[in-house]
Structures are given as C-alpha cells and as structure tokens.
C-alpha cells in the first residue's frame, strides 16, 4: 500500500514529538489505543491560562506511518486553538488532510480520541466536568 506524500512527510519529519510535564495543572494528557492492536498514541496539550489558548502540544506514538502522521498533524492543529475549538477537530478532517485510505481511518479516530482524552484530563484537573462522548468510539 502506498502512503500519501503528506503521511510520508509527517513520518519523516514528525512535528512536536516529545513529552510535557504531566504533573502541571495546565497540561492535559491523553493515552489511547493498545499495544496488542498495534497502535498507542499519547497526546499532550499545554493551555495558557491567561489567553485560554493551547500554547503547546506534544505527541508520542507507537504505530504505523498513518498513526504517526495523524498524531503529528493533530499536534500542529491544536496549537493556537482554544480548548473548545480543539474539541471540534473531527477525525474525517485528518483523513482528508492526509489522504488516508479506508483501512487507515482508525488511525484518525485514534488521534481524535487522543485529543478528547487530553482535553478531558485537562478539564478534570481544573475542576471541570468530564466530557461524556470521549469513549464513544
């Protein structure tokens, strides 16, 4: 199966690989997937408390090229958004941007789940209610 140029680019030059300090109250961490399924994504956001904008986003992913690209793209999109704007990121946006074939759609679903899980973690840490639909997939 051939990968799209965008997937190859994210795979070869992944954006925002790394780790944020998960003990900080303004950092939200989402860990989704499972090793036995061949995909694990960890996505983190850091929220600037004054502006309410996501000031930094980092990821680490165990998975195929499409999973790595999906999470790399997600971190790019997250930066500069408000948490509410970030919640609106849909997996199909990722599919479209990366030209993912049908068999790789689950990679985009995982990235969306990771975003929601990170936001949830941030919300819970800051005394907000947990989002209901995060585990819907």
């Amino acid at each position: 199966m051939a990968y799209s140029d965008k997937v190859i680019d994210h795979y070869s030059n992944p954006k925002n690989v790394g780790t944020l300090d998960k003990s900080k109250s303004n950092v939200g961490t989402g860990l989704v997937g499972a090793p036995e399924c061949g995909d694990v994504m960890r996505l983190q956001i850091e929220v600037d408390e004054e502006s309410g904008l996501i000031s930094d986003a980092k990821f680490k992913t165990f998975g195929c090229g499409s999973a790595i690209a999906s999470s790399s793209l997600a971190t790019e999109w997250l930066k500069g958004k408000t948490v509410d704007q970030a919640l609106a990121i849909d997996n199909m946006d990722i599919v479209e941007e990366l030209n993912l074939p049908p068999v790789k759609i689950h990679c985009s679903v995982l990235a969306e789940d990771a975003i929601k899980a990170a936001i949830n973690d941030y919300r819970v840490k800051n005394g907000l209610t947990e989002l209901a639909e995060v585990t819907a997939h």
Binding site: P14, A34, E36, C37, T61, H137
Partner: peptide
Amino acid sequence: REMSPLWEMYKEGVDIDAIEWAHH
C-alpha cells in the same frame, strides 16, 4: 523509539502490561 510512548514507559519502569488499555 524516540517517538514511542511505550519505549518511554519502559525506560521509566512503568509496567505496560499492568495498564488497562482501551480496545477498539
């Protein structure tokens, strides 16, 4: 491995098998 969350956990001594992973 630099990009792998599992590698990071392994290096930090986290027991990966003990984590309750969500299965799709």
